[in-house]
Simulated assay, not measured.
Amino acid sequence: MKYIALFRGINVGGNRKVEMKKLKGLFESLGYTEVSTYINSGNILFESDLDTKSVLTKITKTFEKTFDFEIPTLVKTEKEMKKIADAIPKDWQNDPTQRTDIAYLFPEIDSKKIIEELPFKKEFVDVRYTKGAIIWNIKKVNVNKSNLAKLISHKLYKSMTIRNVNTARFLAG
């Protein structure tokens, strides 16, 4: 089965540095095949015959032993990633006028109700839920009015990992 591992918070702001070449080697040493990385923020594509839960357990245990720190990790099947990407309206892009991001949700907060708990000013941000993620689009002129920046200090922020729309579409194949 094809999987995508999403690591939360590596190589961001100079903290928790992990070389993608080393991470790729780690995955290969676990017996995963067709391993590739995408950009430097912790996106790994690979194949395995194991189920999702076994894959995640194996990755998290080995990661912590190898790098001496814990990193929250999501493992999604290619099918799950495609479903999330397909939920993004085609005209939602990153361009000079708009910004689109996807927050992949850890299981403990994966619910449509999450939208009501987030600090966004909904009149400025179009936010949508799909199983496993929330997707938002904002006109760049409204970024400061939207309270989007408050997400970083919100209690739910630690239970999600965010990618831009281009990365999300790439990872979905």
Rank of each mutant, 00 (worst) to 15 (best):
E47G: 09
S48G: 03
D49I: 05
L50H: 01
D51V: 10
T52G: 01
K53H: 06
S54T: 13
V55I: 13
V55T: 12
L56Y: 04
L56K: 08
T57V: 04
T57P: 00
I59Y: 00
I59P: 01
T60F: 00
T60L: 00
T60Q: 06
K61N: 13
T62H: 00
T62I: 03
T62A: 05
T62M: 01
F63M: 03
E64A: 04
E64G: 06
F67N: 01
F67Y: 15
F67M: 04
D68R: 03
F69W: 08
E70C: 07
E70Q: 15
P72D: 14
P72N: 11
P72W: 00
T73G: 11
L74V: 08
L74Q: 00
V75S: 02
K76E: 14
T77G: 11
E78Y: 02
K79H: 10
E80N: 01
E80S: 07
E80V: 12
M81R: 02
K82Y: 06
K82S: 14
K82Q: 15
I84N: 06
A85N: 14
D86M: 13
D86L: 14
D86A: 15
D86S: 15
D86K: 15
A87K: 14
A87R: 03
P89N: 05
K90G: 07
D91F: 12
D91P: 04
W92P: 05
Q93N: 09
N94F: 05
N94E: 13
D95V: 04
D95C: 05
D95Y: 01
P96I: 10
P96L: 03
P96N: 10
T97W: 08
Q98D: 06
R99W: 08
R99Q: 14
I102Q: 00
A103G: 07
A103I: 04
P107A: 05
I109F: 00
D110E: 11
S111E: 12
S111F: 05
S111M: 08
S111Q: 03
K113I: 11
K113Q: 12
I115D: 08
I115N: 03
E117D: 14
E117T: 07
L118C: 10
P119K: 01
P119M: 04
K121W: 09
E123Q: 15
E123F: 06
F124S: 07
F124T: 04
V125I: 15
V125C: 08
V125W: 04
D126T: 15
D126E: 13
V127Q: 04
R128I: 11
Y129K: 09
Y129I: 13
Y129R: 10
K131F: 07
G132A: 12
G132D: 14
G132K: 02
A133N: 08
A133H: 12
I134H: 06
I134L: 08
I134A: 00
I135L: 12
I135E: 09
N137H: 07
N137C: 08
I138W: 04
K140M: 09
V143G: 06
V143M: 15
N144R: 11
N144C: 02
S146M: 09
N147W: 03
A149M: 09
A149Q: 13
K150D: 10
K150P: 02
I152N: 02
I152C: 01
S153R: 11
H154R: 02
L156A: 09
L156I: 05
K158E: 05
S159F: 07
S159R: 06
